[in-house]
Design a protein around this nucleic acid. Structure first.
Lengths: 242, 242
DNA sequence: CGCGATCCTTGATCTGCCTCATGAATCGAG
DNA sequence: CTCGATTCATGAGGCAGATCAAGGATCGCG
């Protein structure tokens, strides 16, 4: 079912003045499959919106009236149980799509973890665009299939992995998705609480596990929000329970 | 993104002699969106295959050379960690589709829990059918979105629910998907071990929780593979941690 | 640069579920 | 039917991670 390669097909550059001209994630996002004219029409159907850290983009049980493409920042998808327990189902990085659902309401709350920018589209207009752009539909399917694989991988982590394995797996995931700065320094834009709620642990356990990795010289904390991987092989082993 | 209703669109009955004439799940399965001629071409591209309980349909890390539609029986999707820990990511019921992935290899093993019948399609032929049948693509997207929602719901269960809540949630899910016999007797075609590996628990814990529900007169065990819900409200409460 | 708020770390103790062990119920084969 | 194999139930004890508690680091703001 190879409907798309790992990377979006290369498209000719947009002319200056096109609303998406300086979008950093155009080829990464679902928009990546649209050519200039279709993209212009697409973008014109909705505004660009900004949220600051902590803001709610969509609330679970809200009507799913819009879909979004994240161009900058970081979101979390979470669900709250009646007594306050919270589970984070995933994070959205720039280029990710928000709104894969066939239901009338959102099943999860989406909140900004960092200041975020999104392209917002009314669902009705979006559905029209999808209907008239087969390659957009194909891309959406690819995105959904990818998210499904990621969610199932996370089921293994939550159902069967130990605290050490969970935290090691998480740091590896982050190292793959977050900007590496000079000297292999990795940005960790997620608080201990969010890590805990994503990994099915408590904040104290996450903190202890990170400390243990530091003491064992597997990682190095270079700031509260940055770290370095010292022993990548060991971290891989710990993540897989070897 | 209302590309499909809850139920597949009603199609004219097939003529006797059509290979899918007496398929019990045609409208439920992805095939449901195809009309008689397209369906005939579709079905002719692959055989019907049978597996007995315990057989492996696809092995994780196998090349994803085929896709399947389950017409009868029950499958489990599972993953094994190096040391033998196992997590079941989900079950497939008749009408469900096996093979949503953009990867070259399957990420999970699919095994028959009960004797099962599947329509098997070479991926290349299937991709052709998808490319020439937009409604099939739309349906696949709907299926993927639905599976994604289910997987994320399971993340909440595995990350944050107690053993009691997990088992109660599971029994409710089963009661919604499995054939109710006379007297509200519900079929429970899944062993304690499979329940445990699906719920992120050990078999002894599942057994104890079921016993506790029995003692509390919330359910009644009418056989090893069948039960009755005596107090549905209470079971709902227990599932949600109220 | 001083102050409160927030986030993070660390220690002590507790507990829900796991592990280990055993026997009972059920099932299939002969 | 009987017998062995498998699945399920239940008890006793242990442990990974939760909970409770306290202090330290970092940040935003006047």
């Amino acid at each position: 079912m190879n409907m798309m390669g790992k990377i979006a097909p290369a498209l000719p550059d947009l002319e200056p003045g096109h609303p998406c001209f300086d979008c950093a994630v155009r080829e990464l996002a679902v928009c990546g499959v649209l050519e200039a004219a279709a993209l212009r029409a697409f973008k014109s159907s909705g505004p660009t919106v900004h949220y600051k850290a902590g803001d709610t983009v969509v609330f679970e049980a809200d009507e799913a009236a819009n879909v979004y493409s994240l161009t900058a920042g970081l979101l979390r998808l979470s669900k709250l149980l009646p007594d306050g327990r919270r589970q984070i189902a995933g994070f959205l990085f720039p280029g990710d799509f928000l709104g894969i659902t066939m239901e009338e309401e959102h099943a999860f709350t989406a909140e900004a973890v960092a200041p975020s920018t999104l392209c917002k589209f009314p669902r009705s207009r979006f559905d029209q665009m999808v209907a008239s752009n087969p390659q957009l539909e194909r891309r959406l399917y690819a995105v959904a299939a990818h998210e499904l694989a990621a969610a199932r991988q996370q089921l293994v982590l939550l159902g069967r992995k130990t605290a050490t394995e969970r935290v090691a797996s998480f740091l590896l995931m982050i190292s793959g998705r977050c900007t590496t700065r000079q000297g292999a320094e990795i940005d960790l834009p997620i608080s201990r609480i969010d890590m805990a709620d994503y990994l099915g642990l408590r904040i104290e356990t996450v903190s202890r596990e990170i400390s243990a990795l530091k003491v064992a010289r597997v990682i190095q904390l270079t700031g509260r929000q940055t770290f370095r991987i010292i022993d990548r092989n060991r971290l891989d082993q710990l993540a897989d329970g070897e």
